[in-house]
Amino acid sequence: MTIFNSINTTASALTAQRLRMDVISSNMANVDTTRGRLVNGEWEPYKRKQVVFQEQEGSFASHLNTARGNTSNQAGGVKVSRIVEDETPFEMVYDPENPEADETGYVRMPNVDPLREMVDLMSASRSYEANVTVLNASKSMLMKTLEIGK
C-alpha cells in the first residue's frame, strides 16, 4: 500500500513471466529425453511442465488496512500458484533400433511439442516486454511527481 504499489505489481508479473520462460526452456531442453524419471523401477520419459497463473491476493497487511477503513485498492499482482505436469499421453515413435524400444518397436517420447513451446515463449516474451514498459511509465510518473514546486 505504498507509493510503490504499481511497481510491486509489475515486479510480481516480471517474476511470474520469467518463471514461465524458465519452464518453457526446460521443456525445450528435454524434448528428446526418454529417461526422465524412475517410476516403479521403470524409466519414464520427461513429462511436459506448465505454469498456472493466479491473481495475487493482497498481503495480510493490506487486508488489515482495508478492514480498518483505509480505502484504496489491494496491491494486486500475479503469482505462479503451481507448476503442473501435462498428462497428455506420451508420443509413440516407431524406432526398433533404439535401445529404449519396447517389444513392438515403439519408443515413448516426451509429450513436448516444440512448435507449441515456441508460441508460448513468444507470448511470455511479449508479456514481459509489456510489463517492462509499465514499469518505466510508473517510474517516470513518480519522478515527475517529485518535481512539483521546483
Binding site: T9, T10, V78, S127, A130, V134
Partner: peptide, 8 residues
C-alpha cells in the same frame, strides 16, 4: 499495471 500483469 494490475491488468497488464494479469494478462495471462
Amino acid at each position: 499495471a494490475q491488468n497488464i500483469a494479469n494478462v495471462d
